[in-house]
């Protein structure tokens, strides 16, 4: 068991005919992920890497190959259009890897997602993707650092996710599903959404939550955990030393006034009884101090 992706996942790759998209999609397929189609407008009728049919639209990929999940590697100016097309085509799960989508475009995407009434979920944008170890890996996460297991990992940062997964794996603990929710101010799936999924998943026994400065998603997740989650939760928040008002790489990583700071997030997490790792080196150990 796992959340969101598994053996029934049928992936259509939007924009995977580009160089980076091709490489990552090939890695995903080598991991065992079931890609069924590629979509690149204007290239319909062709073959991708001698493996997959290319369609002009996501609608065609859904109708002809039964795609239910989409991964998006479309460049930023066109990525929101790609997400909206996937929503319109009835895709259930969209994973958008693209970094640099304008906020204004994402307000339209968010609106469209809400109007699906939960039928479509978006992960990202500006994220490393999602992986259920041993079954399905969609995006740019390195498969070899993971192993099947019972810890759910949710994170706004790619490389910090890898740190946490690796720290667990080398200690002999696997992961149920790892979700990179992305570093943008508007995203499809928040910490709280991922925590809910892990909480309801019988195969997930413990949760690691990795956050960073900016917004209040971590505080909201903390409040939910305090109220509803009995499973052990460990967390790490990046950005204690970030100066206010500066955007730290990720578009969403900015402290404005007193809101969004690492201190307020860590305080909220601790108040919810969550074990907060003092350094990024101790994320795995911190979870294992409360879960074995």
């Amino acid at each position: 068991m796992s959340v969101l992706v598994g053996k029934n996942t049928r992936v259509v790759g939007q924009g995977i005919t580009g160089k980076a998209g091709t490489q990552h999609a090939l890695n995903n397929i080598a991991y065992g992920t079931n890609y069924v189609a590629a979509v690149t407008p204007g290239k319909g009728g062709g073959k991708w890497e001698d493996k997959l049919p290319i369609f002009n639209s996501v609608h065609d990929a859904v109708a002809k190959e039964g795609a239910n999940t989409s991964v998006i590697f479309v460049p930023p100016p066109f990525a929101a259009d790609g997400i909206l097309e996937a929503i319109d085509a009835g895709i259930e799960l969209i994973i958008c890897i693209t970094e640099g989508i304008p906020v204004r475009d994402m307000t339209a995407v968010k609106d469209a997602l809400i109007k699906t009434g939960g039928k479509t979920r978006l992960i990202g944008p500006n994220c490393p993707g999602i992986m259920t170890p041993g079954e399905c890996n969609i995006g740019i996460m390195p498969g070899y650092i993971a192993q099947p297991g019972k810890v759910g990992v949710v994170s706004r940062s790619g490389t910090l996710t890898y740190e946490a997964m690796y720290q667990l794996t080398v200690r002999g603990y696997g992961q149920s599903t790892c979700i990179g929710i992305g570093g943008d101010p508007i995203n499809g799936t928040s910490h709280i959404d991922a925590v809910k999924l892990f909480n309801e998943d019988p195969a997930t026994e413990a949760i690691i939550l990795i956050g960073e400065i900016g917004g209040s998603a971590e505080e909201e997740a903390a409040a939910y955990i305090k109220e509803h989650v009995k499973k052990p939760v460990a967390a790490f928040i990046a950005g204690t030393t970030a100066p206010p008002g500066r955007r730290m790489g990720h578009a969403g990583a900015i402290v404005s006034g007193s809101s969004g700071s690492a201190e307020t997030k860590i305080a909220a997490l601790k108040d919810a009884g969550i074990a907060v790792a003092p350094t990024p080196s101790e994320i795995g150990e911190t979870l294992l101090s409360i879960y074995s």
């Binding site: 790619g158 490389t159 740190e163 990046a238 950005g239 204690t240 030393t241 790489g249 990583a253 350094t279």
Partner: peptide
């Protein structure tokens, strides 16, 4: 000098730590 924004922030934090 770090790869990834989250890890870059976390590296600053651990230096301070």
């Amino acid at each position: 000098l770090v790869n990834g924004a989250g890890l870059a922030m976390a590296t600053m934090d651990i230096i301070k730590h």
